[in-house]
């Protein structure tokens, strides 16, 4: 197992997790995860980085139970999905709902009553700067606004563990600053955050830990401090060195 930090008890962990899927008409078996070991400590903010196709999104989906591991174990030290928040990559939501209706709907999925869900929706709309667009249908939202409403729905239940898949995608500089502020606030509140990202500068700025994935495996995990100690020039040269230069990786097909 690869712990990110040693100072905090684990909140989420994957042990030797593999995931093989059958794809295409010829029923080809593709192994996406090839023995992922990862432990995220309580209160950590961890950046999961890696080239496209490395298995980052699959790792998050396995943590959430959206995909079942082929082998290996997944442990979440929280009370089920009621204590987890998730922002999918390139999120798409119900375009016939307004931002307020959507967030209230998400609140009710966590068992909130009508009024509590409405109040929570109002709070979150303010948090992500969408109060003015609260009554606008989601089909009229820009990509950045959708990303922000996506983050808001991930926080509806005030979760202990927040999983964000590419949270900065599609955001303008102001939007990025707001999302960074939200992640920082979550960290200050002692929440645990795991986010996938290609933007190493964000990881360096926001994270306490970093896990680097390549071809379905965690090839490096530790604190950002340690990564920077190994590579004083910043995380970019560190990342290039860890993933082997070109950064290219794709899931290997197995017979």
């Amino acid at each position: 197992m690869t712990p990110i930090t040693t100072s905090t008890p684990p909140l989420a962990s994957l042990r030797a997790v593999t995931k093989t899927v059958v794809t295409g008409l010829r029923r080809r078996r593709v192994t996406i995860l090839k023995g992922v070991d990862l432990t995220v400590g309580r209160g950590d903010v961890v950046g999961l980085v890696g080239p496209n196709g490395a298995g980052k999104t699959t790792t998050v989906k396995v943590l959430l139970g959206l995909m079942r591991p082929t082998t290996g174990e997944v442990d979440l030290a929280v009370e089920g999905l009621g204590d987890v928040g998730y922002l999918p990559e390139n999120p798409y939501f119900y375009d016939y709902l307004s931002g307020r209706e959507f967030l209230a709907f998400c609140g009710r999925l966590f068992g909130m009553g009508g009024r509590a869900a409405e109040e929570r929706a109002t709070e979150l709309l303010a948090d992500v700067g969408l109060t003015d667009a609260a009554g606008v249908h989601l089909r009229k939202y820009s990509k950045g606004m959708l990303q922000r409403i996506g983050i808001a729905q991930a926080l509806v239940n005030d979760p202990q563990l927040v999983l964000l898949d590419e949270p900065m995608t599609g955001l303008d500089p102001i939007g990025r600053l707001e999302v960074k502020g939200i992640i920082q606030r979550l960290h200050d509140q002692g929440r645990t955050v795991l986010f996938n990202s290609h933007i190493l500068a964000d990881v360096e700025e926001l994270c306490t830990g970093i896990a680097v994935m390549k071809a379905g495996r965690i090839v490096w995990a530790g604190t950002v401090e340690r990564a920077l100690a190994e590579s004083p020039d910043g995380l970019e040269p560190f990342f290039m060195r860890v993933v082997g230069g070109d950064g290219a990786s794709a899931p290997e097909a197995t017979p």
Binding site: L81, G82, Y86, P88, P91, C106, L109
Partner: peptide, 13 residues
């Protein structure tokens, strides 16, 4: 197809 199931099934549904 529109992947809104991610939102639903990542919650206690």
């Amino acid at each position: 197809e529109k992947r809104t199931v991610f939102v639903l099934f990542s919650k206690p549904v």
